[in-house]
Design a binder for these strands. Structure first.
Lengths: 250, 250
DNA sequence: AGTCTATAAAATGTCTGACATTTAGGCTAT
DNA sequence: ATAGCCTAAATGTCAGACATTTTATAGACT
């Protein structure tokens, strides 16, 4: 594949990294392909080779590509992507044609992780944390009545789960907040929520709030599972094979 | 703080990033401090400013520092570190004086996450996965008898848990393998394993193997918890507050 | 014919120096 | 005292040259 379809104003290295990163995330190039040479990229976007190098360095850091002197730049496989790099999450946010397999993997992860995180939050949340969770929940409730406010609703949804992760009070769990935004935004773009579905989802979120307020870890875990199962239905994710990816021995 | 105590041969940008990254990880500079200017770093290590910039770009990507034009380079707080960045894990590996709070956070994370991962592994492991797990376990057994083989034993230990994460067959969980090495190596450096303690630990690992072989998720989770509790004892981690970090409203 | 070696070409890595841009702080004029 | 300008300092970008690594090719030798 070539650079032809890509064009946008490139202000700095971050801009270029985002443009190329999103192209890679949407399979504009396929794993194993040879990525265009630095000088070609520089010529196409009208920037210096130096800036291109800075951008490609970022792409390499996220595992999207691998560069070796003399050989060139190779596009890497999904299995090698650093899904937990915040930059990757940022690039994924708002992409309409995100790799479906990737979406499934992220949901499978959340399905297994979020009950634990929510349980932790129930036992570790401070008054401050609880307040943030409740505020986000109220925002969700306020925006659940109209189909026009789907995007605003999604933002509150992100804030809600983010607040839960923060409330776990663990540095590692808190880093995974970044995975929430792309995965929740994808929900908005792919599913046509009926209002009754939104209502059901809201009720399930409410049970998380209650459990955390009572400090009941068991209940919190159960409630978190209920929310994610609802989400999976809305996304129509194939349930049985959700946590399987191709096997390899590397 | 200054660069004075740092000196080593710098071959490329990765070398320099590792040296500076480790210095930051061991609190050679404190959060909020102004990091030395690019030209000073370049002069000290006898390399070009360009190479320094490449190294600092990596440090910024891991959240260790933040750079703003005109202002300079600031050292960031532990809360902002991207603990899931593989490079950070690599820099952490082998550090003897790793921040104790950081170690506690990583262990708290593993204590909550690993039961889930192990349970997933029990239901998703292929024959290949199981074979790798068993091979690592046998390596652990073989090296558990002598105090001289602690390092070799640790490597098998890493391989064991790594294989379990891989067996979960989830792209996100598999990324967290990187956290294992520093956290297991820290165990070797800090605790003086008695041989009976090693024997106990080995037995607990064995129960994980059995559970996965039987495909019993519940048992696998329980066995994983047992292993980590043993580990915590060996590390003498303060148990009650293990999953608490300072609260903040960011 | 086949294999090993030397050479050349192509791509990424590094160095150097200059200029651009952003930030902070001080200085002046009102 | 304050608004505005000016300057110094630090990071960001550009340009061109050279270094290093990898791959492919042509040639010599067996």
């Amino acid at each position: 594949m070539s650079l032809d379809t890509l064009s946008a104003h490139v202000g700095d290295a971050d801009d270029l990294a985002r443009i190329l990163g999103r192209a890679l995330l949407t399979s504009h190039w396929l794993p194993g392909d040879l990525f265009p040479r630095e000088l070609d990229v520089a010529a196409h976007f009208g920037v210096s080779r130096n800036l291109v190098r800075n951008a490609l360095t970022q792409l390499a850091a996220t595992g999207l590509i691998v560069r070796t002197a003399g050989r060139g730049t190779l596009v890497r496989d999904l299995n090698d992507w650093h899904l937990l790099d915040p930059r990757l999450s940022e690039w994924m946010s708002g992409l309409v044609d995100l790799n479906p397999q990737l979406l499934r993997e992220i949901y499978a992860f959340r399905l297994s992780a979020e009950p634990v995180v929510t349980s932790l939050a129930a036992t570790a949340a401070s008054a401050d944390d609880l307040q943030r969770i409740e505020a986000a929940f109220e925002g969700m409730a306020k925006t659940a009545t109209s189909a026009q406010k789907r995007l605003e609703h999604a933002e509150y949804d992100v804030a809600f789960h983010d607040a839960v992760y923060q409330a776990s009070h663990n540095l590692v769990w808190r880093q995974m907040e970044h995975l929430l935004r792309p995965s929740i935004l994808a929900l908005v773009q792919r599913s046509q929520h009926s209002l009754t579905a939104l209502d059901d989802s809201l009720a399930r979120h409410g049970r998380i709030v209650e459990a955390i307020r009572r400090g009941d870890g068991e209940q919190a875990a159960t409630a978190a599972r209920a929310v994610l199962e609802r989400t999976a239905e809305d996304l129509r994710l194939a349930w049985p094979g959700i946590h399987s990816s191709q096997k390899e021995t590397t």
